[in-house]
């Protein structure tokens, strides 16, 4: 299976590569539209700040390319947030794949949320074989409110969307590549999705 990781200079992707290696898959890291279009699966990673990440996406000419991808695409953490319509972080217009907004956590909470929290209301083959209230590793200051695209929710202050799905696009706020065996199962399920 050909897996491409979108390369737009958005931080550390080595652990993502290793997580796929442990599943027997060797991803290609690329910003080349043709290599992305030809892959069986595309991963849209992201750490850091939304505004500058979106600017990097534009520099790499990927703003139009990503929404047109036809195979299963998985956005992780900031990758998922950039697939939304808008983010409060840096007043950033996103790719608009998911019609929802990204907001800052309530200032009364410890921010960033760092650590392991549960995912519930699991509603996708992405979570096949994964029990309700499984723990995933999260590190983020901005969140997507619960909405019709939600396929998992997590509670931190309010209950928010910790995974999204629309058509061939999936997003997880948590880091499956850092969430132990259960996280690895999410990546495996993503590889096994029926196109």
């Amino acid at each position: 299976m050909k897996v491409s990781i979108i390369d737009y200079g958005a931080g550390n992707i080595q652990s993502l590569i290793f997580a796929f290696n442990r599943l027997g898959v060797h991803p290609v890291v690329t910003d080349h539209p043709k290599l992305l279009a030809e892959a069986d699966r595309v991963i849209f990673p992201g750490v850091g700040e939304a505004g500058s990440a979106m600017a990097k996406l534009r520099q790499h000419g990927l703003e139009e390319v990503i929404p047109q991808l036809k195979q299963p695409v998985l956005g992780i953490c900031l990758g998922m947030q950039l697939m939304c319509a808008y983010s409060e972080e840096g007043d950033t217009r996103g790719l608009g794949i998911f019609d929802c907004e990204v907001k800052h956590f309530d200032r009364k909470l410890k921010v960033p949320q760092i650590g392991w929290n549960t995912i519930t209301n699991l509603k996708s083959p992405l979570f096949k074989g994964i029990e309700e209230n499984s723990y995933m590793y999260l590190v983020h200051s901005y969140y997507v409110a619960n909405n019709p695209h939600s396929i998992a929710t997590t509670k931190y202050g309010e209950t928010y969307a910790s995974a999204l799905h629309r058509n061939n696009f999936y997003g997880t706020q948590f880091h499956p590549e850092k969430s132990g065996e259960i996280g690895a199962k999410v990546l495996e399920n993503f590889l096994n999705l029926k196109d």
Partner: peptide, 11 residues
Amino acid sequence: VYHVAEKVNIP
């Protein structure tokens, strides 16, 4: 660090 990341699936 590289070898730890290769094997360890927690942060």
